[in-house]
Amino acid sequence: MSFVNNFKCGRKIILNFEPYNIEFSEFINPGKGKAFVRLKLRRLLTGTLINKTFKASEHLKSADIIKKKFIYLYNDNKMWIFMDDENFNQIYIKKSIIGNNYKWLIPQDICEILLWNNNPINIILKNFVKLKVIKTENVIKGDSVSSFSKFATLSTGVIIKVPLFIKIGDIIKIDTRSETYISRDR
């Protein structure tokens, strides 16, 4: 248990029996009245943000969150299977925890998984991935006046907008946070 006024950004706490990450912390000591702390918290189970105000004298329990590296192996559309990088144990993660991150998971790729009480609660992907273009729209010569991009299907099944010069077989770099094209890999 720790006092709220000692909490800094990045610390994991338990609130209402769930783990939260402190995104923003502000200690306020008004001229009149008691000091308080304003926190912006991210719920680790769902990713939603909440704002909460606490008295400076209140205390909360720290969450036992571990960030560990795993190798993504495969999935059966219900469970995603990962292997521990250190001891080769496998863990199974439900689709509800994977969420939209499935689009950027490449077999044999390393990613980080947040564990709370040794149970997976969230997956952290790399900021950038390189994927192969397997299908793209044909561009009519001279059509670049009306559009600067076209849709392409990537090896994981994701469809994104890419520049007109991208063709089937190209390897492209994607920003997983914004789900946008960054560059063509040579």
Rank of each mutant, 00 (worst) to 15 (best):
S2L: 14
F7P: 00
F7Y: 10
G10V: 03
R11C: 09
I14R: 02
L15R: 02
L15W: 10
F17D: 15
Y20T: 00
Y20G: 01
Y20R: 01
E23C: 06
E23V: 09
I28K: 12
P30I: 03
P30S: 05
G31S: 09
K32A: 09
G33S: 02
K34V: 02
A35L: 02
F36E: 00
V37M: 04
R38M: 08
L39I: 01
L39H: 01
K40W: 10
L41G: 00
L44I: 05
L44P: 02
T46A: 03
T48I: 07
T53A: 05
K55V: 01
A56W: 03
E58C: 06
E58P: 00
K61T: 09
S62V: 03
S62M: 11
A63G: 06
D64R: 05
D64K: 08
K67H: 11
K69D: 13
L73G: 00
N75L: 05
N75Y: 11
N77F: 15
N77P: 04
W80Q: 02
D85N: 12
F88R: 12
F88L: 14
N89Y: 15
Q90V: 08
K95I: 10
S96W: 10
S96H: 12
I98G: 03
N101V: 02
K103A: 08
L105A: 02
I106Y: 12
P107L: 11
E112P: 03
E112D: 14
N122G: 06
N122V: 02
I123K: 00
L125R: 02
K126A: 12
K130R: 13
K130E: 15
L131Y: 07
E137S: 10
I140C: 07
G142T: 01
V145W: 13
S146L: 13
S147H: 14
S149F: 11
S149L: 06
A152T: 06
T156H: 08
V158L: 14
V158H: 09
P163K: 02
F165S: 10
F165Q: 13
K167R: 15
I168H: 11
D175M: 12
D175T: 10
D175F: 12
T176F: 15
S178F: 14
I182T: 13
I182H: 08
I182R: 06
R186S: 10
R186A: 08
